[in-house]
Amino acid sequence: MNTVLWILTGLLAAALLVSTSKAFVPREKIASAGPTAEWVLDFSPAALRGIAALEFLAAIGLILPAVLGIAPVLVPVTATCVALLFVGATAVRLRRGERKTVVGDLVYLAIAVFIAIGRFGPWAFTS
């Protein structure tokens, strides 16, 4: 199960890193990618940079504490915060009426919750 948790953690961290592109690409260009990306127009550029910064820090917090062995308890704490981030993403999608596109956010939410439960519980990192 430890291997499964590591794989899911790596996938979630990679998804969060890819998602940080919203800090560097103009929101109008992102929104032109399709209806699933139009949510960016609901936020100011500063808010998008803030979200991207949180996602970047989350990607780091999911991996580095365990790899370096420094405060590995931060991994499940970060996973819990990521779950809250995706609760917010799901709320935005539902508020916008994007019921079909909410599935991706729910999958990421489930992965984050699974990681948090696994790392807080039976597969916690021991120091």
Rank of each mutant, 00 (worst) to 15 (best):
S19Y: 01
L11E: 08
A47Q: 13
S44R: 14
G69F: 04
P26W: 13
F56V: 12
E98I: 01
I60F: 13
L8M: 06
G88K: 13
P72D: 11
L74K: 10
V77I: 12
V87Y: 03
L17M: 14
F43R: 13
T80N: 06
L11W: 04
K29G: 01
A79G: 10
P35W: 08
A23K: 05
C81K: 10
L85S: 07
A52P: 07
A47W: 07
G69I: 15
V77L: 08
T9R: 03
V92D: 01
C81R: 15
I30V: 11
V67D: 04
S21C: 01
P35M: 14
A31E: 11
K100Q: 07
L84D: 08
L54E: 10
P26C: 07
V40K: 08
I51H: 12
E38T: 14
G10K: 03
A14I: 07
V102M: 11
A37Y: 03
L54F: 15
V92T: 03
V67K: 10
F86E: 09
R95D: 08
G88T: 03
A23G: 02
L74D: 03
V67I: 13
I70Y: 07
V103K: 02
A52V: 01
T20R: 12
T78H: 07
E38S: 09
A58G: 11
G104W: 07
F24V: 03
G10D: 10
K22T: 02
I7Q: 07
